[in-house]
Design a protein around this nucleic acid. Structure first.
Lengths: 210, 210
DNA sequence: CTTAAAAGTAACTAACTGGTGCGTTACCAG
DNA sequence: CTGGTAACGCACCAGTTAGTTACTTTTAAG
């Protein structure tokens, strides 16, 4: 209602601060581990405001989660992959997915938390369902164009491919701590990250190339 | 000290019941979400016993986690993959990893919880480091044999390959709830599971074959 | 200026939660 | 039989925690 003038009282700004703080806390400690008081303090708001705007801790988590998903889906659309040749489009998607996880580490922990709770907090979101459908269609279109021009082989399921593209980046990053201990290497050095990305691009290319 | 005679008081059995209950609860709700009282009740033990045997909630989590990792590493060794031709050995590993995740769903959530806490609970475990080293060597040996016999290409890093084999199964299963909503399909039907396993075997084979 | 609605705050509560003090009971060596 | 010890259990903290109540302050319309 009012973003034109700076106000000492600004509902939208307060909401936004609460959401940002909640995102950070939920990502850091999970839904169960995050504390409402801590979120309120970090947001420079009062706990009462959280309940006023979002109803409950779980509802707040739900909003945070939906926003996080809509954000990555929106960023994917911005790539305009249908303007690129199939090979470049797919490689761009792999690079983007990897970089998005790196730039937005909260995303991964939020998704983990959502799945620990059996996806319960995402069930109602039609906005997300629509965005996801468009995303799958985008990848399907890339695959189709690649098959048509002879660079991709026939019969690759876009959903399975999507899952794999996410998986090979996501797993590496979410399990970097235990992975670092098990494999006795630092997963997060620049060379290690670069090597992993190259490996992942190679994996996806070998999977789809004719 | 006494496993020969059945006792009304059996420290080992009590410990084992506590560990089993803890594994189940930690897997279900995470380290933060699990309740010590609930674990005690499920174990048909007293909360006091948990602190007597394990010291603290975090120490208990640490033991549960280490046991879970040692269990999968031990099962991998039982496969005796060095007795199989390289191709079969690798495919067996991919199938085994997938089936292990399916049969032991707690493993995945425990690992997620461990990583949410930055791997802190695994840091001290030399037993696990040793087991992991042996595991990597096993995969390296398979790759080397495959290269030697000409079926595998040169230069595939066994650690990257391991991570990818785990990733493509792990991600699918850990994110099956949000995935089911996003992609509008049930990830856990028999046909869906079969299709995913086939896709994963294909992915790995295309990655290593000469 | 007035006023009502919206924004914001602090103090509180009822239910938990990890952890412990302390007493009891079964087991086994001698 | 008996005394010491390990196994066990009750009842209770002290500190949290999600959620609420009752209240004040700011905003903006008329």
């Amino acid at each position: 209602m009012a973003e034109t003038k700076p106000r000492t009282r600004d509902a939208d700004a307060t909401k936004a601060r609460i959401l940002a703080a909640a995102k950070s806390e939920f990502a850091r400690l999970g839904l169960g581990g995050a504390r409402v008081d801590e979120i309120a303090e970090k947001a420079q708001a009062n706990k009462r405001m959280i309940y006023h705007y979002f109803g409950s801790k779980e509802d707040l988590f739900q909003v945070v989660l939906e926003e996080a998903y809509l954000d990555i889906r929106s960023a994917e659309q911005d790539l305009e992959l249908d303007h690129l040749p199939p090979r470049e489009a797919l490689e761009t998607l792999v690079r983007f997915t990897w970089q998005y996880y790196l730039d937005n580490p909260e995303f991964i922990t939020l998704v983990n938390s959502a799945n620990l709770h059996r996806g319960r907090h995402l069930e109602g979101s039609d906005r997300l369902r629509t965005a996801s459908r468009r995303f799958v269609n985008m990848v399907r279109a890339i695959l189709d164009r690649g098959v048509e021009s002879g660079v991709f082989r026939v019969g690759v399921d876009p959903v399975q491919l999507n899952i794999t593209i996410a998986a090979i980046g996501y797993y590496y990053l979410t399990n970097r701590y235990t992975g670092g201990i098990l494999f006795e290497r630092d997963f997060m050095t620049q060379p290690a990250l670069k090597e992993r990305l190259a490996f992942n691009i190679d994996t996806v290319m070998r999977l789809v190339l004719a």
